[in-house]
C-alpha cells in the first residue's frame, strides 16, 4: 500500500472528523446522523495505520492494488449512505404529508367551531 495513499487517507480522515465535530458543535448535524461519518473516518485511520489488513483484504476479494480496494470501498460506502438517505427522505416526506393533513384538518375544525359560535 503506497505511503502517500496512507498519508492522504489520514489527512482526509482528520478533515472528516474535524468537519463532523464542527457541524455537531454548530448544531447543524444530529449526533445520530454523525455516527456513520465517525465510523467511516475511524475506518480510514485504521486502514492507513494497518496496511497489512488492507493487503489481506485485497487477497480475499481478488483485487490486485490496495488503492483500487480503497476506492471501491469508498464508492460502496457512499452508495449505501446515499440509499439510506433516500429511504430517510421518503419516510420524512410521508411524515410531512401526514403533519400537513392533520394541521390543515385541525384548522378547519377550529374554523367551523368559531363559525358555529358566531352563529349562536
Amino acid at each position: 500500500m503506497p505511503f502517500v495513499l496512507r498519508i492522504e487517507m489520514l489527512v482526509l480522515a482528520t478533515v472528516v472528523l474535524f468537519t463532523v465535530f464542527l457541524a455537531i458543535r454548530q448544531r447543524k448535524l444530529l449526533v445520530r446522523f454523525a455516527l456513520i461519518w465517525l465510523v467511516i473516518a475511524v475506518g480510514m485511520v485504521f486502514a492507513a495505520l494497518c496496511p497489512a489488513f488492507v493487503i489481506w483484504l485485497c487477497g480475499v476479494v481478488h483485487i490486485e492494488q490496495a488503492s483500487n480496494l480503497i476506492y471501491l470501498l469508498g464508492l460502496l460506502v457512499l452508495l449505501f449512505l446515499s440509499l439510506g438517505q433516500t429511504v430517510l427522505l421518503s419516510k420524512q416526506s410521508d411524515q410531512i404529508k401526514r403533519l400537513t393533513q392533520f394541521i390543515s384538518l385541525e384548522q378547519f375544525r377550529r374554523m367551523c367551531e368559531e363559525r358555529d359560535h358566531g352563529d349562536r
Binding site: 400537513t100 393533513q101 394541521i103 384548522q107 378547519f108
Partner: peptide, 12 residues
C-alpha cells in the same frame, strides 16, 4: 374548505 398549509399534490 380545508386549506392545506402546503401543496401536497393530488394524492395527499
Amino acid at each position: 374548505c380545508v386549506d392545506l398549509v402546503q401543496n401536497l399534490g393530488i394524492g395527499g
